[in-house]
């Protein structure tokens, strides 16, 4: 049995060391965000700063506009999550629970778009936004990102609501609950875990999204998100290394924290998707 225990210990050491090494780029960025420009060079690949220079964050936040980018990213992420949750929970509910004429057509259309490659149609969307006069606002990014996620979310909610016991709704209807009350008071509260899964998935995608905000903020620097701000910043001031590292932490830390807190919803959602 001692041999067994030794193997277990070795496994833990190997997993811990390789796991931390796996995250080395993140640790390096975190450490370098607290270094002075001189230390940045002399420390090189060593992530540990000799002393902590918090001013980098202040400079990134104020002078490099990361404060503004942060607010834009928060607004875009919140807007996308709220719209996606409202739209997909309602659609998933009726697709799962009522048998209205045209349901088959709607389902077919939704399934077909799952197979179509996305991301190649940004040009007409851009043109459409221009015609709707939404081009110079965060709304364009929010709407385009939300519509990119509706199919996935609708499918998840549909699957979830189909698994809910029908007797609950029948009982509610006997008690005189109408269509909306059944949905809002019975079904929606039951779907808490799915709201968390779809919400977290949408939040991560929206927060990290690059292509859509890149295209829709091309001429408007004040609308940039954090990811676009980083990309623009390295193009313009590629020598402000420590500032860029502070920007990296400002961009990555909130979403990593959110993920660590809610990860079971995310991981369960992914696992469920692949098993279906």
């Amino acid at each position: 049995m001692t041999r067994r225990r030794a193997v277990t210990a070795m496994t833990h050491v190997a997993l811990l060391v390789s796991g931390l090494a796996w995250l080395y780029p993140l640790f390096w960025a975190l450490g370098s965000s607290l270094k002075s420009d001189d230390d940045f060079f002399t420390d090189g690949l060593n992530p540990m700063p000799s002393h902590f220079l918090w001013a980098n964050y202040l400079n990134a936040w104020r002078e490099a506009s990361f404060g503004r980018y942060f607010m834009n990213t928060i607004l875009i992420t919140l807007g996308t999550v709220v719209i996606t949750l409202v739209v997909t929970s309602c659609a998933g509910y009726v697709l799962a629970r009522t048998r209205f004429p045209g349901r088959g057509f709607c389902l077919g259309l939704v399934s077909a778009t799952l197979f179509l490659p996305h991301g190649y149609t940004i040009i007409p969307v851009f043109d459409l936004m221009q015609r709707l006069h939404l081009l110079n606002s965060l709304w364009s990014v929010i709407i385009v990102q939300a519509s990119g996620g509706v199919v996935f979310g609708t499918f998840l909610f549909m699957g979830y609501f189909m698994a809910v016991d029908r007797e609950l709704e029948d009982a509610a209807q006997v008690d005189g609950a109408n269509f909306h009350q059944t949905f809002a008071r019975i079904m929606l509260p039951l779907s808490g875990p799915m709201l968390a899964t779809v919400g977290l998935f949408t939040a991560i995608t929206a927060w990290n999204s690059f292509f859509i905000p890149l295209v829709f903020t091309l001429g408007r620097p004040e609308l940039r998100t954090l990811a676009i701000g980083m990309y623009a910043f390295i193009g313009e001031n590629s020598t402000e290394w420590t500032l860029l590292c502070a920007g990296t932490v400002i961009t990555l830390a909130p979403i990593i924290l959110l993920f660590v807190l809610l990860q079971r919803f995310f991981v369960n959602g992914l696992a469920g998707a692949v098993k279906q």
Partner: peptide
């Protein structure tokens, strides 16, 4: 630990790798 890179922005990771 091994899943964490999935939730990071590819663009920002690109910037970090470029800096490195």
């Amino acid at each position: 630990l091994f899943f964490l890179p999935v939730v990071t922005s590819a663009a920002v990771i690109g910037v970090v790798i470029q800096l490195l």
